[in-house]
Structure formats: structure tokens, C-alpha cells
Design a protein around this nucleic acid. Structure first.
Lengths: 253, 253
DNA sequence: CCTGTTTATCGTCAGGAAGACGACTATGAT
DNA sequence: ATCATAGTCGTCTTCCTGACGATAAACAGG
């Protein structure tokens, strides 16, 4: 019964990317403006077709590089300067999600540090970092700079919401928040990542105690910096630990 | 560039199911024997093609019903007697995972209580509950009853391992362990679920304090049972809570 | 130079949760 | 009657967290 090669409906398979970063104390996602129907002129998540000989993760990494110039971080390989965390998020396959044909999209989640160049990819006008709050709040109407904000194309609002929720919960029990930081960073910078992703204020003293007391989370590099103003802060790199035990606790209310 | 309808490679899309239950103090998964090449005679996860007009979750629920007679549990609907938890697990799309053609499989995870009828589905000889340890340990060679055990077909060993890991971590911070129990169950039965899924022994006194002290986890029904021998135990139903805060802690070593 | 502001870092204390484990209870089996 | 088996309630110690006081090291401006 299964696998009759002559009797299965053909699908198009795409990858869509939720690329998150923290800019100006806000969690932002990469959005591209669609140049053709359907949803012409609307913002959408970057993505594209999976090629015939390509793995899903490979396709996602390729799209990520095309849009941002970021390399997917290979846990086995060396630490690259432009490395982003990349993982599979979920797969969306409602028969009506694309009006033209049956498309199944394997969404991926990428976490990147704040990029010096806002739009290193191909065409500049149609790619931007937008606060996720702005992209998800369909009632907002207008963004920060007066640009009209309409709901994201296709089911991308749902995909983005799922990606944001994944990131919010995953930084609780893993060291993934460091993926939002440059290679060297301070405890305060890491704290501001948590505050931006969770949208809450954290006590600097308790946060400092927690992260410096978790073995393998942070490794001091010896240097200090004063780029945030105030007293110089120690610089750290991400340690080898990936799972935090006990986890960071996200405040309730 | 994206979505040129004439220029995308066609894929077959399937759903594969990791159906877990707890039988005789062991975590077991549903396996079907393949009747045709490739991997003829090997055990595999149940699954099948997604139909042309069908959502992914719908396809998974349909396959689950076909193989086990279980209904997928709809959180919004009433509590059905034969309801299993069903959620999307991950998607597997290596170009070579099926030697015949390009197949992308959206794996789903289902958790079911121990079924009175071991193989309620279609053909009986070729479906069985097997301890996951047996299915995943490719060196085992022979199962409990002398039946030869070979590695699962395709990449199903990886899919099963991912599903088991998802279940193991998810019962930590959610009330999902109750999906392995009948509608009414005792604290001891719930504890044996945790012990089987995690493969560890838990202190009955601390476990009792924890689960009865977590608001919304368990609701006493008033009845008692002595089906486990010993002193009669209170019967409970699953409460409304889905997230456990603080979570159950999985012992380290 | 002194003062106020900002950020970083250390310390203290009370409350809650978890692991270890003793004690008692209510069944059925011998 | 005695024992074995499960279930349930308590106690104690330890660890972690949240709240928050205090000090340190930079910069800005008068």
C-alpha cells in the first residue's frame, strides 16, 4: 500500500527562515518584501525552494547565506566569525497555505548577533530587520518610521510566532542566548539579550550571580571593556556547556 | 526568483509516526514489518503518504487511527476514551533517505496509554509494540522472544530516537506523562510511567509530594483502587495544567 | 578636583523546593 | 497472626532564587 511510486501527489518543498537578532534592545526578525503575487508588496520571511539534491538543513543554510551572508554554525567545526545558530523549527503544510499550489514549508530558526551591515544580502530595498512585535501586531498599522505594516504573507505570522516562542523558551534551559552576542561580550550585554527576548527587566545582580555561577556557560577572556559606559566589565566567550542546569528562570508576570 | 511554478523539483511527502506507550514497565514503540522492498521484512515506523488535499496533522491522525484505532486528542474537544496525544516531531529530508525517490517525511509523535488489544489495526502479524531499547540497540541481534532484530528501515532509528528524546524531555516540564495513563490512574502508576520513560527509579515519597503539590496537575476523583496490590491508592484524573512550574526533575546520573 | 550618573560586581538574608529518609497505614498472601 | 507490598505523611538539610544593600570604576560637567 505505501510507496506506490505512481500514486503520490507531488508537492513543492520550501524552507522558510525565522532569523532573529537583538537590535537596540528589541528582538528583531529578518523580513523581505515580496516582489510578485501572491501577496505582492507584503513582507514575508526569507525562504525558497529546496533543490532536488539538497538536504533540508543545507537548503536552509544556503538561503541564510544568500540573505544575510551568515554561515550556519557547525557545532563540530571551528567557530567562524560570521556564524549563526541554525535549527529546524517546524513544518507547515496546510493545503491552502499557498494559493498557487501545494507547498510544504520546513521552517528553520536562525539566531544571529547584531550585524554591522543591516542588509548585506542581494537587493537592499526589500530586506530589513523589523521588531517582531511590529511584525506580529497586525493591528499596529504603522511601523516605527511611518512605514505601513500589513500582516505577513502566507502563514508567516504563525511561523514567526512559533520561532519567537521557540527562542524564548530555549534560552531558558540552554546557552543559546550567546548566539545573539558577538564572540566576546559582557554579562550586561548577555542580560540585555535576555531582557529583549523575554521583554522583561532582570535584576543585574542576580543575573550576574546566576550566569557566572553556572559551570561551562561563560569563559572569561581576561579582557575588559567599557563600551557600555560605566565601570569596565569583564569580557567572556561562550563556554562549552549547551544545557543549563538548573535553567534560567523567566519571570512570571 | 522564488516560486516559479514551472521550476521546482517534485517531492513526495509522507508522515511517519513514533507511537509510544508504556507496557510492562518499559517504553515501547509501535513498529510495522515492511512487506515490500526496499527494506522488505525489516521493521519500520508506521506512516504513509500525505494526500493531496490533507493537512499534515490530519494525515498523521488518519495514519494513527488506521494503525491503532486511536483518535488524536483534540485539546478543544471533549475527552475521548481512545484519545492519544499527537504532535509534530520533526521533518526528515535527506535526498538519499529513500532509495527510490525524493521523499520528505514529517514525523509525528503520539503518546498513548497501554492498549488492551495489542494490535487493533489492520493486519495483525506485521504490527507490534517493541521496547524502544530493543529497536534502537542495533547490536542486540535478538529481541526478548528470540525474534531477530535488525536496524529499523530507512532513517527510522534516528526518527525514533528523536521522538523518544522529545518525550523524555517533555514530561519534565509538562503534564504529558498523563497521556500514557488511562483516564483514571494512581500516583504510583504515574510514577511508573516516569520511571519507564526515563529509565530511572524515583523516590515514591518525594514523587507523591511533588505531583500532588503541583496545582492543576492531578484532580482526585474520590475513588480508590488496589489493582497494584498493597494499600489502596487514590484515583486521579489529569488536571487542566499543561505546563509544570517548577518542572519535574530528571535525576542526573 | 569634586560630584553626580552609569554600569559592574560582591554580599546578605529570607523563603521555597528537592533529595534523603523515617514512620505509619491499609491491603492481600501465607 | 505475620509478612510483604504499596501508599501517604513528616522531618531535616541543602541548594537556589528573589529582594536588595553596598562598593567599585569609569565618564560628564561644573
Amino acid at each position: 500500500m505505501p510507496y506506490d511510486p505512481s500514486a503520490f501527489p507531488p508537492f513543492a518543498v520550501t524552507v522558510d527562515l525565522v532569523v532573529l537578532t537583538v537590535r537596540r534592545h528589541a528582538l528583531c526578525a529578518l523580513a523581505v518584501r515580496r516582489g510578485e503575487p501572491p501577496y505582492q508588496g507584503r513582507w514575508a520571511l526569507p525562504g525558497g525552494f529546496v533543490r532536488g539534491d539538497e538536504d533540508l538543513t543545507t537548503a536552509a543554510a544556503r538561503e541564510l547565506a544568500e540573505e544575510t551572508g551568515l554561515n550556519a554554525h557547525d557545532p563540530a567545526g571551528p567557530v567562524l566569525p560570521n556564524a549563526a545558530h541554525l535549527e529546524q523549527l517546524a513544518t507547515y503544510g496546510d493545503p491552502k497555505r499557498d494559493p498557487r499550489m501545494r507547498v510544504v514549508s520546513v521552517a528553520h530558526l536562525a539566531l544571529a548577533p547584531d550585524l554591522p551591515a543591516p542588509r548585506p544580502g542581494g537587493d537592499a530595498r526589500s530586506v530589513r530587520w523589523a521588531p517582531v512585535e511590529e511584525l506580529l501586531d497586525q493591528e499596529a498599522g504603522y511601523g516605527r518610521d511611518g512605514e505601513q505594516v500589513t500582516p505577513l504573507a502566507f502563514d508567516h505570522a504563525q511561523i514567526l510566532a512559533d520561532g519567537v516562542e521557540r527562542a524564548r523558551s530555549k534560552i531558558e534551559y540552554s546557552s543559546l542566548a550567546t548566539a545573539f552576542c558577538p564572540q566576546e561580550f559582557t554579562v550586561g550585554e548577555l542580560r540585555r539579550v535576555y531582557e529583549a527576548v523575554w521583554g522583561v527587566a532582570l535584576d543585574p545582580r542576580n543575573f550576574h550571580r546566576k550566569v557566572t555561577g553556572t559551570p561551562g556557560f561563560l569563559v572569561p577572556t581576561g579582557g575588559t571593556t567599557t563600551r557600555q559606559g560605566g565601570r569596565p566589565a569583564q569580557l567572556f566567550r561562550a563556554g562549552g556547556a549547551t544545557l543549563l542546569n538548573p535553567p534560567m528562570l523567566r519571570p512570571e508576570a
